[in-house]
Design a protein around this nucleic acid. Structure first.
Lengths: 219, 219
DNA sequence: GAGATTATGGCAGCCTCTGACAATTGACCA
DNA sequence: TGGTCAATTGTCAGAGGCTGCCATAATCTC
């Protein structure tokens, strides 16, 4: 959201103050993720992160509302990135198709966007940590829920519907989001699979959405 | 899970010690929910809850791992209750039908089960608080995610499938769970709607699952 | 009733997070 | 260039969540 260019492409002239802030923020993220990878989320204190980034603890909390937030910062950017891809889908595409294409499209280029903040490998380790740390996983789900609200609004906008009266956008997004969570979880369990692997799992599981809702599975 | 009889109907002979523990636990829950309703979740300290229940703070943390847990205790029971209803569905029912009937069935009788611990009205207030308190909502979503894993296993068992090879149980449950979250949210926003209202929203939204996945919405 | 278990209370202490105030630093203009 | 204003940071104090440890008190078992 803050540190990853989402592809909108508009460049603003950043003053020294802005650049410094961004640098501090990125340093905090990097320091945190490295420490987390080394000693785990609970095993790392905010004091340690602050010290590694060479700022006071108080400053840490001015950049991140809580310890979870720094752990989810990159993931958060990834989700904004995906959302930006959705907006780019042509209006002619059906809702579910647009969602599907947006995920696949985002994985084509999100890798480099991540690298601009932390090494991809470190982010993947972090992702696995999120899935396996209850407190982080809970916060992650919460963010996804908020993302889904945005998605529903965007789908409704595309189709010219009112989210308050037509349930379909929310229902579609809920189903879609559910599948994405399952695939994310599977991917995380896969240990060290790459983005191609993730792509495979996703298409496979999305393809099962129709069949899964069918009345009779025993055919 | 602990305080609500889930309908399995097995009666064990509880000694004085067990009864006392259960009473303490229930008192803690009631005290907590009342204070939460009065002063909000963040505005209530564990010390206050403990004092209201007439135990030490240390004892509180022996009953609940953290402050969130006591807020979600009743909701947790409700979910176990639903799960028990799912197990009772006849094997002939198709997966989605079984899930749907299980929710509806659980709402027929969960009211009394709740009343055995706290007034229904208080629980509904608590539910709304959960939806509107970020920290609680996150924890709630986490619990739902774990419930969905159980549901997927149960569906797979019913259909004689292996969750590891067939994606359908997980996909179905993910979609179903997503819709349930949306309905729960809507119900919470509805202010003071009763269980009948919840039932209506649920059937309405579940019915939209098929249409929402359709390729073209403009028919 | 004596001894073994188990629940509770009290306390010290770590960690997360916040408010308040002072000091520093960058932005901007005469 | 220097001076003013606004934003950023550090320091400090303190509340609140949560845990380990040990002593005490309450049940359970025989």
């Amino acid at each position: 959201m803050h540190t990853i260019e989402d592809g909108t492409g508009r460049a603003a002239p950043p003053g020294l103050r802005e650049r410094k802030k961004r640098r501090t923020r990125d340093t905090l993220i990097r320091s945190a993720l490295e420490l987390f990878a080394l000693k785990g989320f609970d095993g790392t204190t905010v004091d340690e992160i602050s010290e590694a980034a060479d700022v006071s603890q108080r400053t840490f909390f001015r950049y991140f509302a809580n310890k979870e937030e720094v752990a989810l910062a990159v993931q958060d950017s990834v989700e904004s990135f995906f959302f930006a891809r959705l907006r780019e889908r042509p209006a002619a595409e059906a809702p579910l198709t647009a969602l599907r294409n947006a995920v696949l499209a985002s994985w084509d280029s999100v890798g480099e966007a991540i690298e601009s903040v932390v090494p991809l490998e470190l982010h993947m380790r972090t992702y696995r940590m999120i899935e396996s740390t209850p407190q982080l996983f809970a916060a992650h789900l919460h963010r996804l829920a908020r993302l889904e609200e945005e998605l529903a609004r965007e789908i409704a906008r595309r189709e010219g519907l009112d989210v308050r009266t037509d349930p379909r956008p929310q229902v579609l997004v809920a189903a879609f989001g559910g599948v994405m969570r399952v695939t994310g979880k599977l991917w995380g369990e896969r240990g060290n699979a790459g983005l191609e692997e993730l792509r495979k799992i996703t298409t496979r599981y999305l393809d099962q959405l129709g069949p899964a809702l069918a009345e009779n599975w025993r055919n």
